[in-house]
């Protein structure tokens, strides 16, 4: 009886200890990112400039009646601006360090630590993201000086926020998977770039997926990339009615589960190769 109780308390303690370690990884990643302050200012500056350019572009396009009429101009400008703000977080490739570590051989030092590697990268990635998430607030403030964006109801905003977090995770695990795969094909830079471009175009970051015509539109909407920008943004501008939220969010969760599982499997193979082949 007392043995069981003792076992339980030690397990409880080691769980807290483990949680503390991963929290510390996130904190350190946050501090690490914050050492490059100039980069923060330039990224905010370039974002504000892009907000202004996109507003001009869409206004011009709409005056020529080129855009599909379903999305009104104010919603389009809102879409473009919010997409830019989201990109502050989504363009952080938190697991890029896997590739660097494998190439430089520093992965050996990490493997000599009593930690789970995927959890470590996840925590580190979250820490980096949290720092960049902070830059959204000032960026938004500056953007509002240049453009008007629609403000959704609290309910819509909450659904958007949830979907954004899920979109972040889809993106995170997709990147994670790509970075682990890069382990086998260190020179597969071209493949990486293609996935990146596909993701830029097909995620709805640059333009709403409604712009893709007919069957092409249906295919693009069915790809995992749509979960990253398109789903949360369509919730935000009201393209997705509340009745469609749940299925859309379920699809996002499905992609997260798939990519997380694939990344974990890929990592197991990579790790096995490191410890058998020596990297």
């Amino acid at each position: 009886m007392s043995d069981i109780a003792f076992g339980d308390t030690t397990r409880g303690r080691s769980l807290t200890n483990a949680a503390e370690a991963y929290l510390e990884f996130a904190r350190k990643a946050f501090s690490r990112e914050s050492t490059y302050r100039v980069e923060v200012f330039t990224s905010i500056g370039s974002l504000v400039l892009r907000v202004y350019l996109l507003r001009s572009l869409w206004t011009a396009l709409y005056s020529q009646n080129i855009a599909p009429s379903r999305i009104p101009l104010h919603a389009m400008i809102t879409y473009a601006t919010v997409a830019l703000l989201m990109s502050l977080v989504l363009e952080v490739d938190g697991t890029r360090l896997i590739r660097d570590k494998v190439r430089e051989g520093t992965i050996a030092t990490d493997l000599m630590k009593p930690i789970s590697q995927p959890l470590y990268w996840f925590s580190d990635g979250i820490g980096q993201t949290m720092f960049h998430a902070l830059t959204i607030v000032p960026s938004l403030a500056f953007a509002l000086l240049l453009v008007h964006i629609d403000v959704p109801s609290p309910g819509v905003f909450l659904a958007f926020a949830l979907s954004f977090v899920l979109g972040y995770l889809v993106n995170f695990f997709l990147n994670f998977l790509m970075n682990v795969i890069a382990f086998w094909t260190l020179e597969a830079f071209a493949m990486q770039m293609m996935v990146r471009w596909a993701s830029d175009l097909l995620s709805g970051q640059i333009l709403p997926l409604e712009f893709f015509p007919g069957i092409l539109g249906a295919i693009v909407m069915g790809l995992p990339f749509a979960s990253i920008y398109s789903t949360p943004l369509r919730i935000y501008i009201g393209e997705l009615p509340p009745s469609a939220w749940l299925p859309a969010i379920a699809v996002q969760v499905g992609w997260i589960a798939l990519f997380a599982a694939l990344a974990a499997i890929a990592w197991r193979f990579a790790e096995k190769r490191i410890i058998v082949q020596g990297g």
Partner: peptide, 20 residues
């Protein structure tokens, strides 16, 4: 094994957490 961008002492704190 130290964190390149951070003050030395922060790497020690991280190791304290890793090894509990």
């Amino acid at each position: 094994q130290l964190y390149w961008d951070l003050p030395l002492v922060e790497s020690f704190e991280l190791l304290r957490a890793i090894y509990a």
